[in-house]
Design a protein around this nucleic acid. Structure first.
Lengths: 150, 150
DNA sequence: ATAATTAAAGATATTTTTATCCTTAATTGT
DNA sequence: ACAATTAAGGATAAAAATATCTTTAATTAT
């Protein structure tokens, strides 16, 4: 649904929030390994998330430094991450790609999508970063061995 | 939500279906203009939709030729277009991008997304190409003049 | 047979996304 | 002051998506 950037951003945010809940800062290597994402690419994404107009993630340079999430930030909805990555359009926009698709000038999918969109928005807006971090669900890709015999 | 390719594919399919319902074949120029998409790119997409393993769209070369949709094809769900464009993963896959995200090994968004996914799938599976084509909703981008005064 | 019209197929170009590398700045401990 | 560790920022590379152009094949009408 989202770009790889946003997928990594969501996973990184949850990962950092978990470590921050036990007052542990994490460095880029730990984050990248913890979410199974490429290290340097993850670093770029963390820059976006720690940008001062966004401030989902905080960071400190130097030894004993690293990334963490402030208590206030962790109470914000995970939707803020999607906003920071500038991908709200993926949910908001017309399914057929038409600009100005609305009640007045709808496309054929406007009405059916309207309610689905509400549901989609609510799964990201109703849950805080903290709540999601509290679940111990995995954030890292796993390989499931193929059970079929050749 | 979908790639531009799939957006154009959906719009082109609906456009052709409308013309076919009045037994009119349309050429690439007419389709591209009718949906506000780049001509040559639209042509490539139509090749995918008319591929023999897909057969959503039919075509005939030469004068008086063009694209059309057979009655049987128009009764298929619009979801078939998303399948033809190989983008069902956009709906089906894990929101955080994790492989093997399921009941047994879920991510934190698995459960909340589960129902939304059902709704999303149903808006594409419950409507046939024909039904959507029958609505006279627009398929072409429109410019809404900016009402704000500078 | 020839010319005109159309889609199919193949080649190329451009833009965006994804990924990596290198240098600089900040912080800490010795 | 110096070395080590960390993030920030800038530059580059590789891959994928988007877009365009050219040639070929099919069909039709003359």
């Amino acid at each position: 649904m989202f770009s790889k950037s946003t997928e990594y951003a969501l996973r990184a945010t949850i990962f950092i929030a978990r470590q921050s809940s036990i007052h542990k800062k994490v460095n880029i290597r730990e984050i990248a390994e913890g979410i199974g994402a490429p290290k340097y690419f993850t670093a770029k994404i963390l820059q976006q998330l720690s940008n001062k107009n966004v401030q989902i993630v905080s960071s400190i340079s130097g030894p004993a430094g690293g990334f963490f999430i402030k208590e206030e930030a962790s109470k914000r909805p995970i939707y803020n991450v999607i906003e920071a990555m500038q991908e709200t359009h993926i949910i908001e926009d017309c399914v057929l790609g038409l600009p100005n698709c609305n009640e007045k000038t709808p496309c054929s999918m406007y009405k059916p999508y309207k309610d689905v969109k509400k549901g989609l928005l609510s799964i990201f807006k109703d849950k805080s970063i903290q709540e999601i971090a509290n679940s111990k669900d995995r954030l890292i890709p796993i390989k499931i061995p193929n059970s079929k015999k050749p």
